[in-house]
């Protein structure tokens, strides 16, 4: 397993380099201009100067080289500096700079991670916690009213777009009832019981919207996987052994059904980091998803390039993790 993992990691390096280059070329070919959003009162000559100062329009191989050097050399060195290990001259670190903020892209990303993890990550966790029991019961009592209701809610959760459920929640809970804030306060510092309550309050709606969406997806997987396993002969064997239903369902069926579900869950983890663009926008959570969309709108290529590449790394990594988990959970799979 270790050899397999190492081999996969080694293969991932050229894959990622190719991906980064493809992203770079696509962004380079994409129309758009970082000064395009400035007011028209700024004349074209000034815009040309601004573009020049940003380094827009450099030949692609030079721009790509600079970015790769920034991402793989200067950024790691910078963070080593921060923890006290200095290699080379710290003043030489040309970090990747965003066009729009003129600040280092990595600082922006780090600033965004907490709220994204809190909101999107928590909604993923809640989604899973809700989905698993629903999936198990739905499958165990297939076609019962519980299953029908679960199917209906999943369909709703899956097919109704989050911008609709989000707005609906704002209208009901913020405008009409006034229970929860419609705007997420990213500067809230949780340091007391009251601020904790505030934090919970402002997280309720975005987390609920996303959790519903995640739960409906995962509960379907769980149900299908349970149904596959419930009809397997080994389940009958377990019953024939005289095991209680609890043991049969929770030990035999659930553990086997979880194998594919766990990999689906692992593969979904990168989507947490890419944030939930629409939901973040609606509740103004301003996490990584919102950062990406602002970057795209403003043609902030260094930001978009870096973010998409980080997502690519996460996707490659979690694919590997999913495969490894599969290997650990399912004794029939051996990678070596």
């Amino acid at each position: 397993m270790l050899n397999y993992t190492l081999r996969r990691l080694l293969f991932a390096i050229p894959t990622l380099l190719v991906i980064s280059f493809i992203i770079f070329v696509i962004l380079d070919l994409a129309p758009g201009d970082p000064t395009g959003q400035l007011p028209l009162t700024i004349p074209a000559e000034v815009r040309a100067k601004i573009r020049e100062s940003l380094g827009v329009g450099e030949p692609i191989h030079i721009a790509y080289f600079k970015w790769v050097r920034g991402f793989f050399v200067y950024e790691p060195l910078y963070w080593l500096d921060q923890i006290g290990i200095t290699i080379g001259d710290p003043s030489e670190r040309a970090r990747i700079i965003s066009y729009a903020t003129r600040g280092p892209v990595f600082d922006l990303i780090l600033e965004r991670i907490p709220q994204t993890l809190w909101v999107v990550g928590l909604s993923y966790v809640f989604g899973i916690l809700i989905a698993l029991p629903i999936g198990v019961i739905s499958a165990y009592k297939q076609y019962s009213w519980f299953d029908q209701l679960g199917t209906f809610i999943s369909m709703v959760g899956f097919s109704v777009p989050t911008f609709f459920t989000g707005l609906l929640m704002i209208v009901i809970f913020s405008v009409q009832l006034g229970w929860f804030p419609s705007v997420y306060d990213t500067t809230l510092d949780v340091n007391s019981w009251d601020t904790f309550i505030l934090q919970v309050k402002q997280m309720v709606m975005p987390v609920a919207v996303l959790a519903l969406y995640n739960a409906s997806q995962i509960s379907r997987f769980m149900r299908a996987s349970m149904l596959d396993n419930l009809t397997q002969d080994y389940v009958r064997t377990a019953r024939a052994k005289g095991m209680s239903e609890k043991v049969v369902v929770l030990t035999h069926v659930l553990r086997n059904s979880l194998i594919p579900v766990v990999t689906v869950i692992a593969l979904g983890v990168p989507t947490i980091f890419s944030g939930a663009i629409i939901t973040e926008q609606i509740f103004r959570v301003n996490g990584l998803g919102q950062l990406l969309i602002i970057g795209i709108q403003g043609s902030d290529f260094p930001l978009v390039q870096t973010l998409t590449f980080i997502f690519a790394i996460l996707i490659v990594l979690f694919n590997l993790i999913a495969d490894v988990i599969y290997g650990i959970l399912d004794p029939r799979i051996r990678y070596d």
Binding site: D233, Y234, T237, N256, I259
Partner: peptide, 25 residues
């Protein structure tokens, strides 16, 4: 169900598909 489970050990079954009837995990 409880009484049934108590009597279960006395009656057992051997299945057709020896692969499927054993829990793979």
């Amino acid at each position: 169900p409880k009484a049934l489970r108590e009597i279960r050990p006395r009656m057992q079954m051997i299945f057709q598909d020896p692969q499927a009837c054993l829990n793979p995990r």
